[in-house]
């Protein structure tokens, strides 16, 4: 199977500048591409910094501003006290869950390595994340919030937010934003005239 296959039709930027994207979709994506203020509105500065690091690791995103955008999206949701419609009953309300778990993560770092999470080496940070995923963090600061469920919820939220950004969608070759005309050849490749057109297959 081919990895890192270039985009089938065009880059997201080319698509957005073309007539292939509807006005409604264009407006939403252009807005999302705007540089935004990433200062936290709900979390304190230390927790926000920690959350940004977690997002960077979970999403393997070395671009600090992209990871910070995801963290800022989470923070903005918490600031507005918005819900995605449900939560595990065993978990505290989302605001408390994030605030408690981020503090607990720092406490875990301090008790294991005598440093704040943010000051640890990448290896140690990753080791702690693996512990969190397995629910093996231990310590009484985790009594009020399940590390397993927190990891699951954080991973889901960060992933959903990350793949809502055009650069992430472009990386996986998603052309579904080209919605103005829809698609004609929708089956497997051998039955697709679209794919036989040199203009498309010869893109770099």
């Amino acid at each position: 199977m081919s990895h890192n296959k270039p985009h089938q039709l065009a880059t997201t930027r080319q698509l957005l500048d073309s007539a292939l994207v509807s006005t409604a979709t264009k407006a939403v994506l252009e807005d999302r591409l705007q540089e935004k203020q990433t200062a936290p509105a709900f979390l304190d500065a230390a927790s926000f910094r920690l959350l940004t690091i977690l997002c960077r690791h979970l999403l393997a995103e070395e671009d600090g501003t992209r990871a910070a955008r995801v963290a800022a999206d989470i923070d903005a949701r918490l600031a507005a006290n918005k819900s995605n419609g449900w939560r595990y009953q065993q978990m505290p309300a989302d605001r408390d869950a994030y605030a408690l778990a981020l503090k607990a993560m720092d406490e875990t770092a301090r008790s294991n390595y005598q440093h704040a999470f943010a000051d640890l080496s990448t290896d140690k940070q990753l080791a702690l994340l693996h512990q969190l995923q397995k629910g093996e963090t231990g310590g009484e600061y985790w009594n009020k919030v399940s590390p397993l469920k927190f990891f699951e919820e954080l991973l889901c939220e960060a992933t959903e937010l990350y793949y809502s950004y055009p650069y992430a969608l472009e990386e996986i070759g998603f052309a579904g934003i080209a919605d103005a005309q829809g698609w004609k050849e929708i089956g497997l490749p051998q039955e697709k005239e679209e794919d036989k057109q040199p203009a498309i297959t010869q893109l770099p």
Binding site: M1, K5, L58, L59, A60, Q133, T159, E171, I172, G173
Partner: peptide
């Protein structure tokens, strides 16, 4: 998660 997730999503 991490690199494994990004890699897997390349197969979307």
């Amino acid at each position: 998660w991490g690199a494994a997730l990004r890699e897997r999503m390349q197969q979307y």
